[in-house]
Amino acid sequence: MIKEEFSSGDSLVHSTDPRIKIIVAVLFSVVVAMLSNFLAIVAALAASLLLIMIARLSIKKVFYRVLLVNGLILLLWIFLPFTFKGQTLFVIGPLVGTKEGVWYASQITLKCNAILLALIAFLSTTPISTLGHAMSRLRFPDKIVHLFLFTYRYIHVIFHEYHRLTNAMKIRGFVPRTNVHTYRTYAYLVGMLLVRSYDRAQRIHNAMLCRGFSGRYYTLSQFSINRLRDILFLSLMLAAILGLVILQWKTIS
């Protein structure tokens, strides 16, 4: 399931305060999503790549993760060049590819990858439980933080439950085919998972009540930003983001 392969390490990015990483990741993503200048976009992508290098992550593993998302982006390349009005760039049979369409598709591709790499560098270098606590420290609503932490904890349990159910099906000779029996069986499987998860949620809530839970979630972890390194890292990142904004703004005016 969730292996958190990148979360352990001792690079500069790993040891930075998780709250700073969240803030920078959000700011960076928003700014990059708004960029429209080619130079600025390429600069953003380069910055993300640099971050991956600083975090010393396995390039191969990062590549596979990015590849997954680019599969979706590939779909855009099938449609966007032909559906945008503008200057003709190439013609395939009855289809006309426009310059604007291609530019738009490449913009999305570059921006997506830049944001994705930055998120990998910032967020997946933090253990998920730490992220949850950092979110709560940043005054994210309690409900979102709980939802996040509980999803993480119970996705494994639900996954095991799913396995138990599919194994129970297999040992009684179930082989998926394209027929009503298969569809019905899968519907039962999903339904059963839903019901069981609901029951489990109820039991967990009971278990929490028994231990004095009253809606407020206290955490053990305490962070403090007073390390020079954290502040330095934050300023550096803010400067880089500001650089992107300037690059964008200069070419418009």
């Binding site: 998920i128 439980s129 932490l149 119970y154 489990r200 967990i204 278990a207 929490m208 955490t219």
Partner: peptide, 10 residues
Amino acid sequence: DQLFSPTVLE
């Protein structure tokens, strides 16, 4: 049902 925190200590 009882253990819902990420780590044992928590």
